[in-house]
């Protein structure tokens, strides 16, 4: 997976902050944000996950134009998700599975107006037995986000897990 242009936009940051229930004005009030040490609107710590919006092939978004979608319509499902398209744009969350771990390293502040690119590489993979969900297959992916000057801004490591049966906690 690679993303050429992940635009860091103030309105997207505002909507993202709302969705996580964070009323901090650093995420929407430009005048306030300019008066702080951040010197402008910044993105919340987990915002890099929304790079999925900028991945043209992201497999957890319905595609325009008849490729089908596995969520319900008239019937309870359309079809199974395609696993062949690999991991997500969001720092490698679970590919057609569940998200087990997520780690971010922040090298530079992420600011409104930045334009990032992202490349993802596979990391480690391992298996484990679980009472709740049978055999668990874990796989790691590492995404590097760089800004318009080629500087590393965020390193995101996601661990996905595929379970033998649904997890019922």
């Amino acid at each position: 997976m690679a993303i050429d242009k992940f635009l860091i936009e103030a309105s997207h940051i505002m909507m993202f902050a709302r969705s996580i229930g964070d009323p901090n004005p650093i995420y929407y009030d430009e005048d306030y944000a300019n008066s702080t040490d951040c010197e402008g609107i910044i993105a919340p710590p987990t915002f890099a996950q929304s790079s999925a919006q900028f991945d043209p092939h992201y497999f957890l978004r319905p595609k325009i134009g008849g490729e089908g979608w596995f969520g319900s319509g008239k019937e309870a499902t359309g079809m199974k998700p395609s696993k062949s398209e690999g991991s997500s744009g969001g720092g490698g969350s679970a590919a057609a599975g569940l998200h087990a771990e997520q780690h971010f390293e922040y090298h530079l502040p992420l600011k409104a107006g930045d334009v990032l690119s992202a490349t993802t590489k596979p990391g480690k993979s391992w298996e484990k037995e679980s009472k709740r969900a049978g055999k668990l297959k874990f796989s790691e992916s590492v995404t590097e986000y760089r800004n318009q000057d080629g500087e590393l801004v965020i390193t995101a490591t996601g661990v996905g897990v595929q379970t033998e049966r649904p997890v019922d906690s």
């Binding site: 964070d22 901090n24 040490d37 910044i42 987990t46 569940l98 971010f104 922040y106």
Partner: peptide, 20 residues
């Protein structure tokens, strides 16, 4: 993350990782 940034301040995080 909101709880963390409310505590440590904006733009100060170096690392943040979780297990679900």
């Amino acid at each position: 993350g909101k709880m963390i940034t409310n505590y440590v301040g904006d733009g100060t995080l170096k690392k943040y990782g979780v297990r679900f």
